[in-house]
Amino acid sequence: MSKADTGNFFEDFQPGQVLRHATPRSLTAGDQAVYTALYGSRFALQSSDVFARQSGLPRAPLDDLLVFHVVFGKTVPDVSLNAVANLGYAAGRFGAPVYPGDTLSAESEVIGVKENSNGKTGVVYVRTRGVNQEGALVADYIRWVMVRKKDPASAAPEPVVPDLPGAVAAEELTIPDGLDFLAFDPVAAGSPHRWDDYQVGEKIDHGDAMTIEEAEHQLATRLYQNTARVHFNQHAEGKGRFGRRIVYGGHVISLARALSFNGLGAAVKLASINAGTHAAPSFAGDTIYAWSEVLEKTALPGRSDLAVLRLRTVAAKDHACGDFPFKGTEGSDGGGRYHPAVVLDLDYSVLMPRA
């Protein structure tokens, strides 16, 4: 009898089920260096101990998305090893900063299940909590994923679909202890634009683009210990719907975040992922462009040094922003459908310095 873990199929998930994920991970400065090499992220808070100390932190924290991806990677063997696709995110919050030497672990609770009409797959909703070695929350989010059934003839479960909030309220965001932008250095940050300089409805073309390389995607996904077969096994995926391996959606999120530096360089700290959709798959060779829209501005009581900017960043493959229409809120054609080029639609909030 094989001792290999075949992962959970749709029938194995039940609302209320708690999954404690294996392999706690101690992160190092080397992990941050590899992450920076993969995406070229230039945000000063995660790049400079000096800048971080000027901002009230003991040293540069690890990139927020590196933390997110590592926590996500812990969940894959239990949640999405047999996934067809990761569909979206909601109610994501970043908690305590993570520093080199911290150890992260994760657990997930199943909060919803719904079989698809084809009877071969279903959607599973989970809430995942990532904590450090002291039990402090570092990341907390909901995601939903399409998972294969092991037996298509098995009975469909009673559908349970959670009520998902549209955004994380400002009062629910975590401001790291000591974080203070009174001495924020715009030259070191690479941007003169602060929270006060942005207007709701403003649209920012980030200008640059990055082509997805197979080797970089493979390295990134292994860095996060993400074992999803759709990203690695060409023998399996060559027979699948697309005939090739799919790029991990989080890889596109990190590419879009790195591109957003051009226009949002002072947005040095992620506070939440309010909602997110992987609108279409990405593959090696796709060139990713990104642009952002300011959705909301929120001042924080008692804080004159920083405030919250809520953004919508859209990433598209092989399609520049300049000739891409901004229409509607669900999709860029205004009819609730995404343009075929759109691969990511991410709603998130950042902490920015005030003027």
Results as ranks from 00 to 15, higher is better:
M1H: 13
M1R: 08
S2L: 12
F10M: 07
Q14E: 12
Q17D: 09
L19N: 00
T23I: 07
L27N: 06
D31G: 00
Y35I: 04
T36F: 13
G40C: 05
S41Q: 00
F43C: 00
A44S: 07
L45M: 03
F51G: 02
F51R: 02
A52I: 01
R53M: 04
L57T: 02
A60F: 03
P61M: 04
L66C: 02
F68R: 05
H69S: 08
V71E: 00
F72K: 10
G73H: 01
G73C: 07
K74D: 11
P77T: 04
V79C: 12
L81T: 14
N82E: 06
N82S: 12
A85E: 03
A85P: 09
A96C: 05
T103P: 13
A106P: 15
E107P: 10
S108Y: 09
S108A: 07
E109P: 12
V113S: 04
K114E: 08
S117G: 08
T121V: 10
G122C: 06
G122E: 05
R127C: 05
T128I: 09
R129F: 12
N132R: 01
E134D: 14
G135D: 08
V138Y: 06
V138L: 03
W144F: 04
M146V: 08
D151Q: 04
A156D: 02
P157L: 06
P162H: 10
E171R: 12
E172R: 07
D180Y: 03
F181K: 01
A189H: 13
S191W: 12
D197I: 05
Y198H: 11
Y198I: 06
I204W: 03
D205K: 15
M210W: 15
I212G: 00
I212Q: 05
I212F: 01
E216S: 05
A220S: 06
T221R: 06
Y224W: 07
Q225E: 11
T227Y: 13
A228T: 13
R229P: 10
H235C: 14
H235A: 15
E237F: 13
G240N: 15
R244D: 11
I246E: 06
V247H: 03
G249P: 15
G250I: 01
H251M: 01
A258T: 12
L259D: 01
G263K: 15
G265Q: 14
G276S: 09
A279T: 07
F283E: 06
G285K: 15
I288P: 09
Y289H: 09
A290M: 10
L295Y: 00
T298H: 15
G302E: 04
L306H: 01
A307V: 03
V308A: 03
T313S: 00
V314A: 04
A316M: 12
C321T: 15
D323L: 13
F324G: 01
F324N: 03
G334Q: 10
G334I: 12
A341Q: 02
V343D: 02
V350G: 02
M352L: 05
